[in-house]
């Protein structure tokens, strides 16, 4: 943390809620270089031999530990692709906080493509939090294209919270998951786009074995001239439960395409999807205005609540 400058520290605070060096294991990456790393007795972090990323290995039975792996880019024109692999040992219970913040004050595009793979062992539980944030007033774009692959072994579970609220010009997010017997996957995605931003989120969860469940919920707001595409697919190849939901607010000239899809390949696969897109209801604004808020304040409260 001491190696980071003011802008980088601000970005880290935005994407990882970190204001100082965290407890537990961490790996800070700033402008494509390692800026700090700590391992623990149970969590090891090693750079890949070819230098393309890191391997995070969590010992079986590790409980109540956390790993922070924030990335910040504060130089204009940087483009990088990073491969991070997480090996989560059996019966462990950990929190993993990733996230990327880009501050681009220059005229060249800055881009970070993080490819994360999670191999979650039997009976393990992972809570994964990923935040994306952009700032800076340059003409260069702030681009983030994360790819997340999740492989859940028998009885394991993963809760993913993915948030991108501000400042990212272009994002193409791909999340794929495979679930074995009795595994559980919960994805909560929150997204807000402004200006001319575009955001595509593609999620594909394949349930391979019986008793597994996947629940994918996206809440998003598209403002100004921004565009979003939400494409969530759950495939049930065994007796299982699957649910996708896309709930969106459009404002100004914002546009959203929601494409939830389900594929049942087993007669006992129970799959549901819901999708709703609309502007803020006039009666919601009126209600909050009768409580003393201005229309703009009411709008802000409604959106903040919706994306909370």
């Amino acid at each position: 943390m001491e190696k980071l400058d003011g802008i980088q520290k601000r970005l880290i605070a935005e994407v990882a809620d970190l204001h100082e060096v965290p407890m537990g294991a961490y790996n800070f990456r700033a402008n494509s270089k390692l800026a700090g790393r700590q391992t623990t007795a149970n969590i090891d972090i090693q750079s890949k031999e070819n230098g393309t990323g890191i391997d995070i290995k969590i010992k079986p039975g590790t409980k109540k530990e956390s790993v922070h792996i924030p990335v910040v880019l504060s130089e204009s024109g940087l483009k990088e692709t990073v491969y991070n692999d997480f090996y989560v040992g059996e019966d462990s219970d950990v929190v993993i906080v990733a996230g990327c913040g880009i501050d681009n004050c220059g005229s060249q595009d800055s881009e970070h493509d993080g490819i994360h793979r999670f191999f979650v062992g039997k009976g393990a539980h992972v809570k994964y939090v990923e935040k994306h944030y952009g700032s800076g007033d340059g003409n260069g774009k702030r681009i983030l294209n994360p790819v997340t692959e999740v492989y859940l072994e028998e009885g394991s579970s993963m809760e993913m919270e993915m948030v991108q609220i501000k400042g990212v010009d272009s994002t193409e997010r791909t999340t794929v998951a495979e679930l074995k017997k009795d595994a559980s996957l919960v994805i909560r995605e929150r997204l807000m786009t402004h200006g001319e931003q575009t955001a595509n989120s593609i999620i594909k969860a394949t349930i391979l074995e019986e008793g597994a469940s996947a629940d994918v919920v996206s809440r998003s707001v598209a403002r100004d001239h921004s565009y979003q595409k939400f494409d969530a697919c759950i495939i049930g190849n065994a007796p299982c439960h699957g649910h996708t939901e896309c709930d969106s607010i459009i404002m100004d000239q914002g546009r959203i395409l929601a494409v939830p899809s389900l594929e049942a390949n087993d007669v006992d696969a129970e799959l549901f999807h819901e999708a709703a897109i609309g502007k803020i209801a006039g009666e919601q604004l009126i209600k909050l205005m009768t409580l003393g808020l201005t229309e703009a304040e009411a709008e802000e409260q409604i959106i903040n609540g919706f994306l909370k």
């Binding site: 709930d247 903040n304 609540g305």
Partner: peptide
């Protein structure tokens, strides 16, 4: 209101 809790609304009120 999706997302707003009873406590949130009482605070606003």
């Amino acid at each position: 209101f999706k997302g707003l809790t009873v406590h949130d609304l009482l605070k606003i009120a």
